[in-house]
Design a protein around this nucleic acid. Structure first.
Length: 477
RNA sequence: CGGGGUGUAGCGCAGUUGGCAGCGCACCGCGUUUGGGACGCGGGGGUCGGCGGUUCAAGUCCGCCCACCCCGACCA
């Protein structure tokens, strides 16, 4: 519960972010540096995210399984880029049961290696392919600087790992999952994202190509909200994932991996939140509708509560909370649920009992403008309608904000100033040195080379050489 | 690992020249309140980050250590 006003976003965005998470009881700091406790309200949001994504994975033929937390150190070392990328951030177990281990065990930072090892045992024939497995779990990466949800030592995610007969199939899978992530962000979280390909310096350690969905946060910084990797035959060769093709010839598989983590919660917070607190996208909100009964005394309470219960029953298909606390005032409850981002609030008092109405207040439109009377008859239909409108309005608002903070630039000077205020969209030759120079000068990195590319070609915004792709540059979380 | 900062009740903080450890919020009880953050009265809650030193006496002075935060380096 909270009693004071939040730090406004414009004053100190990081402070606002930390406060809103703690006051809305999404998460708390754990006793170990960089670790967090996901509190029930935060976990409820994660469960809704899981449910939505999991449904889409199942629809596309994926199944869930669980692989071990511990990975033999030697596994990581089998793929050169992979070990180079991850070794600085590994947590390693060297003692078990009081005895020094013969081989150190890595706490998984991601599971390509151990899953690759298992796949090599399971895959014998082209008839075993494609193999489409997902796992929901936690991973550990020993990060230097951490932030709740965005970067913690331990985080929760899903990681899909697939094996295919051909490069073409693997590419299709990689892009299919990128598309699913895009749809999830748009249709469920109301977070507009740009799907695209990562530059080679930004790609996953061990991948041929990485793709991501990139979202703009309320301070205009970019956040990678999901990734999908085409791993080529790198892991297949490192772990001998081979099959016999119809001609009885031994072939290496083509593999992919893709993931979305609890970081996405950070994306939701920073995309929709305002100075009053969180704003939950209706489809993922742990509580979609909060009902606040209004009464002055027992007599009024006796008249109001049956109507409240009736409305609750009508809305049984939704996630509804009745806030019947007697120790706090309605005004306090309004602020309290606004902090937690409940998309729709219904107030039901003596006047509503008489008139057969309820007062509805939209979280996305503060104050009187967001309030309207709904008839008690057919309340479910009216509430569904409002929730759908809130979803659309949140998406549109975020998209308008994002688009108004992206600047198309043709000169290096414009690029430098653009990334101070938002994102820059520019031609890039693809050379890592140009990328590095931008990072050196501005801290902005290439976020992605969007799938949607304009016609024609241009000159690299950094070096002026011919460029055939446009890229987003931005400062990122 | 470098630079800076902070450690006193759950949270935010005050604590003078060394002299009984406090305030606000939160929490518990009772009563009055309740359509935009109510109020009164009464309560509970402390290894002052840790260890050592100086002193009749240390939250306060000295030394060492630890933790956390910010900036940097680093970063699927």
């Amino acid at each position: 519960m909270s009693n004071e006003k939040l730090t406004p976003r414009s004053e100190n965005y990081s402070e606002w972010y930390n406060q809103v998470i703690q006051r809305a009881e999404m998460a708390d700091y754990a006793p170990v540096r960089g670790c967090m406790v996901v509190r029930p309200y935060g976990w409820a949001l994660w469960e809704n995210i899981q449910h939505a994504l999991d449904g889409m994975f199942k629809e596309t033929g994926h199944v869930n399984a669980a692989f071990p937390l511990f990975i033999p150190m030697s596994f990581l070392e089998k793929e050169k880029e992979h070990v180079e990328g991850f070794s600085p951030e590994l947590a390693v177990v060297t003692i078990g049961g009081g005895e020094k281990l013969e081989e150190p065990l890595v706490v998984r930072p991601t599971s390509e290696t151990i899953i690759g090892y298992m796949y090599s045992k399971w895959i014998k024939s082209y008839r075993d392919l494609p193999l489409l497995i997902n796992q929901w779990g936690n991973v550990v990466r020993w990060e230097m600087r951490t932030r709740l949800f965005l970067r913690t030592l331990e985080f929760y995610w899903q990681e899909g790992h697939t094996a295919h007969v051909s490069e073409q199939e693997a590419i299709e899978e990689t892009l299919r999952m990128l598309e699913i992530y895009t749809r999830f962000a748009t249709d469920y979280a109301a977070v507009p994202v740009i799907p695209g390909r990562k530059s080679s310096s930004e790609k996953f350690a061990g991948a041929i190509n990485s793709y991501s969905i990139e979202a703009m946060m309320g301070d205009t910084k970019a956040l990678q909200a999901g990734t999908s990797h085409m791993l080529g035959q790198n892991f297949a060769k490192a772990f001998d994932i081979q099959y016999l093709d119809p001609n009885n010839e031994l072939q290496y598989c083509w593999t992919t991996s893709w993931g979305v983590s609890t970081r996405f919660i950070g994306a939701i917070i920073m995309t929709h939140g305002d100075d009053q607190g969180l704003i939950m996208p209706p489809k993922l909100a742990p509580i979609q509708v909060v009902i606040v009964p209004i009464y002055k005394n027992d007599e009024e309470r006796a008249r109001v509560m049956p109507v409240v219960e009736n409305i609750r029953a009508e809305l049984a298909s939704l996630r509804v909370k009745v806030d019947d606390r007697s120790e706090v005032t309605p005004g306090f409850k309004f602020n309290d649920w606004e902090m937690r981002g409940v998309p729709l609030r219904l107030e039901i008092g003596p006047k509503d009992v008489e008139k057969g109405s309820v007062m509805a207040a939209r979280r996305d439109i503060p104050g009187r403008e967001g309030k309207s009377f709904l008839p008690q008859n057919d309340i479910l239909h009216a509430v569904d309608e409002l929730l759908a409108q809130i979803h659309d309005a949140l998406f549109e608002r975020a998209k308008t904000f994002r688009d108004s903070h992206i600047q198309e630039v043709n000169s290096y000077e414009d690029l430098v100033s653009a990334v101070e205020k938002g994102w820059a969209y520019a031609w890039w030759c693809g050379n890592g040195e140009c990328e590095a120079r931008v990072k050196e000068d501005t801290k902005a990195t290439t976020r992605c080379i969007p799938m949607d590319q304009p016609e024609g070609s241009g000159e690299c915004v950094v070096c002026g050489k011919p460029a055939h792709e446009k890229v987003y540059f931005a400062r990122a979380y």
